[in-house]
Design a protein around this nucleic acid. Structure first.
Lengths: 179, 179
DNA sequence: TGCATATATGTGTCAACGCACATATATGCG
DNA sequence: CGCATATATGTGCGTTGACACATATATGCA
């Protein structure tokens, strides 16, 4: 299971609370690994039991206090060891494509709306990724530690562009044969 | 949950056994919804209890007998009703991208091999998709019932092409800074 | 006969996951 | 004061899903 490793990866960037991680999953690493907040909090407990992360309470003013986790040296070596293991097959599931597969057996008007919504959300994410790229990788030479993050972001950009082009072409083609 | 609907979609094409479905998931619909054979057999039981599919025993010679399922009219209307519901967010998970995100904290030689393997499997799937396209959608005009399947296949082709280009560009870039 | 493989259908079990719900602190608004 | 919202951390519970294992038929090969 890669949720624990994804959390460790996040914590190599900076120490974070469960709440921070949940937001980070929603806006950044969520592109290739997503998790809900209960799952993150539970996983952090397990990681602490294993000694892969350490926590301390941080007193805040104007906000509730938080528990900040940082990766330990044991956590770092666990991450390194894991990285050598075989990569599992990427998981991809999309019930929009399930509908499309049986286009003659679904509500075509609804499908059209669903594709328009998908197009909109792809455009929104593309925008978001462009902003991250401009903010973090704007200078010509990207230093080594950020190279991987930049390449991941580039994949995300290509991915969303692919969806946008595909949705547009599908919308054009289903206009013709809609009742 | 879209596993039951994916099975119904498969059965709109032709009646199938659990074994057939498992192979179909591996080679066709698996691109956008995957499932293991125990999951498929259990789901078929549930679908039959709901009356969305009906089964009959088919005696075979030279092979063990099989239980063939077909979609019922209740199943068809359940599929139609489901198609109007909101599409859930597509799920994508890939621990190769998790490794890449923390490139400074992983075994870079192993990562390089993992990317080469990903490139190979993307090329293999692309090949497979090209074969399906040539076999099923070779004639100029695709009839309406197949239009959705063809558009899904086109997305798969673009998807694998995207991975291939991306893997190649990543391999070039990590050669430079490898120890 | 023994063994491997393909076909065919399952069970048992546990981990992963998602959703609703619970709880508390603090700010701002009417 | 009540209410909404953001921050912050959880529990409870049911579903989904993955993996090992079990079992049976039939073919082919050594």
């Amino acid at each position: 299971m890669a949720l624990s490793e994804t959390i460790l990866v996040c914590l190599t960037e900076r120490p974070m609370s469960g709440y921070d991680l949940a937001k980070f999953f929603d806006t950044s690493v969520g592109f290739f690994w997503n998790a809900s907040h209960p799952q993150i909090y539970r996983e952090l407990k397990k990681l602490e039991q294993r000694g892969h992360v350490a926590s301390h309470r941080e007193i805040q003013t104007g906000k509730p206090n938080k528990i900040v986790y940082e990766i330990t040296s044991d956590g770092r070596s666990a991450l390194y060891d894991w990285s050598k293991e075989a990569v599992s097959e990427p998981v991809f599931k999309d019930d929009l494509l399930v509908r499309l597969q049986a286009i003659e057996h679904v509500d075509k008007a609804a499908l059209r709306v669903q594709i328009i919504q998908r197009l909109a959300s792809a455009r929104q994410r593309l925008d978001q990724y462009h902003h991250i790229r401009d903010r973090r990788f704007s200078e010509g030479a990207v230093e080594a530690p950020n190279l991987g993050k930049m390449m991941g972001l580039e994949l995300g950009i290509e991915y969303e562009n692919g969806w946008i082009n595909w949705c547009e072409s599908v919308l054009k083609r289903i206009e013709h044969f809609e009742a």
